[in-house]
Nucleic acid binder design. Structure first.
Lengths: 336, 336
DNA sequence: TTGTAAGCGTTATCAT
DNA sequence: ATGATAACGCTTACAA
């Protein structure tokens, strides 16, 4: 027999005060006499009272929950962002609802609607690769909800944008390959509907220009960046005379190394490559892979803090750019 | 100016019926005249009505939410379980709140309490390594909440247990090493307060016994299984004459390979190893690492379905054991 | 088949 | 400083 959980009314009755007084005492209002407050707090603790957040939410019209929306929970990068954001938010008393879109526009709409409907206080998201633009997000997310985008962001939406310094990253990776003596450097560039890939590409081009080299659109591959396409485009790049590639992803970089092997070019002697994301396997492969290291932990933390700060101040969440850094390993150690 | 979202009362008023009728119609009750139902549904759709799940939850005393509790969100294995469980649950209309314990008992208690307080319908969890036993879970989780444990489970708790066939896994991995000609096979065994490690160890021992070999407790390392301890214990094992190890984790296996290298033993010729979990890097390393492949996707799916089925039938969620399979690669290809 | 009314547990408003 | 009261939006006996 479970005796029903005590409510503020139970406490009120036992102490001969009114429920509203108990509510005030519990929520730390100034308008309660010190002694009354003490009696209430003691009784509450004593009878194991616990606030019912659902009732509070119904009354207030908002929950202490934040939705995190990512393309895939099980991608290392996103898992790390989520992990760190979750920690921050939990510490601040927020629950976290996690949703994945599987890179599908339809799913993104669906989960956003579900989050809104359950009255989350904020949404921290990285949009799907399928999104043609931000219009559906604008249409679904009401202005009262704090919106924090990270990694893949739409600049025409309100709210915070927490991003990697992708321009800088593309620039450094490419400059590094140039310095190591590679002559014809192509790029596995990713999807141009996503800002972060456009930025990495821009960095790549700028590095070439700054080194007085031509930009050859013919060796810039605007394609998905998975292992298979990395292999295919790697072959094409090599056949077009490339002796190095900067890849906007590590898996496609992996495919490109396989392509070099397929063509009998030893990496790094005859073919250099730099990937992006510094996946665990990069350091363990042979040759080990140079890669642009991102910082999902910091992104997650900043995203969470941006939201929390906005709640505290009542203002808009604030944006940030996170530094990236190049992990130099064997795969780009120089043309010989 | 946002016009307040329509409620069932708004619909009721406009149609000249009672709110309760609208509620019934929307929840698919039989007790509504076909025509009335149609009018209500049409009006609801037309005015963009959306049910407020918070009000429903307050009324019913339970939400359509499931809590998933794991030691770390960003561990590949757990991220995969979560990802697949989330998909199943979302499809069934459930939200998913994800919590991590960082392997700490205190955090586990905290998040469990938070989930209970927010009235989740079920909890899918894998307990923390720090847990001495199941008593805190029993104390916190009320019987009305469906409990589904996976991977790391306590058998003395009610509810479902979805586990890998760890005994079989440990057995197969060890038998494989025996067949490949390794003579003295040790084990990086993990934590004995966790059933899954006990089972893998049991499998290891049984395989040795079945092959007529002695079980030497001196080369069974009951320690954490991370890269560092894998290295340290790998050194010890080698110094005790081991020429092979079965490791209950891939990272510790990695450390052990490094230990072999440190001692000048070539893997796999003079030192064989089989890891566990089939992490992505296993296939990319050199030598590539043999590993016991687990199936987090299936675990996640089964855990979610077990919960959903229990809700449907009103009964207890049902348990399952998932097959594991050995991925044979270079690191165990034979003593020479 | 539909309406009435009470209530889930909390908080905000107004009055005292 | 406290109390009374009315919501928040929905569901469910019970009545009609």
């Amino acid at each position: 027999m479970t005796p029903r959980k005590p409510t503020i009314r139970d406490i009120a009755r036992r102490l001969g005060v009114n429920a509203s007084t108990v509510s005030r005492a519990l929520s730390g209002s100034e308008l309660v006499k010190e002694e009354t407050r003490r009696r209430i707090l003691r009784e509450a603790k004593q009878c194991g009272y616990e606030n019912n957040p659902i009732a509070t939410s119904l009354r207030k019209g908002v929950t202490e929950t934040v939705g995190i929306v990512v393309p895939r929970i099980n991608r290392q990068f996103f898992a790390n962002v989520i992990s760190h954001a979750e920690r921050e938010l939990n510490q601040a008393g927020y629950s976290v609802i996690i949703c994945q879109t599987s890179e599908r526009l339809q799913d993104e709409k669906r989960v956003l609607k579900a989050l809104i409907r359950s009255q989350v206080a904020g949404i921290i998201m990285s949009h799907s690769i399928e999104d043609p633009d931000s219009s559906h997000i604008r249409a679904i997310v009401p202005s009262r909800i704090k919106l924090v985008q990270f990694d893949r962001v739409f600049y025409d939406l309100p709210g915070a944008k927490i991003v990697n310094d992708n321009f800088r990253g593309g620039y450094e990776a490419t400059r590094h390959l140039i310095e190591k003596g590679y002559r014809k450097i192509g790029m596995l560039a990713g999807y141009m509907n996503t800002d972060l890939y456009r930025e990495r590409l821009r960095g790549y081009k700028q590095a070439l220009l700054d080194a007085g080299r031509p930009v050859d659109e013919d060796i810039i591959f605007l394609d998905t960046i998975v292992r298979e396409t990395g292999f295919e485009n790697g072959l094409k790049a090599i056949d077009k005379g490339c002796d190095a590639l900067y890849s906007a992803g590590d898996f496609s970089a992996l495919g490109a190394i396989e392509a070099a092997r397929e063509r009998g070019l030893r990496c790094p002697d005859r073919f250099g490559i730099v990937g992006t994301a510094n996946e665990i396997f990069d350091a363990l492969m042979s040759p080990s892979m140079s890669s642009l290291e991102l910082h999902p932990d910091i992104l997650g933390q900043l995203a969470a803090r941006s939201f929390l700060e906005a709640v505290r101040t009542g203002g808009e969440p604030s944006s940030a750019t996170v530094e990236v850094n190049l992990k130099v390993r064997e795969s780009s150690s120089g043309f010989r």
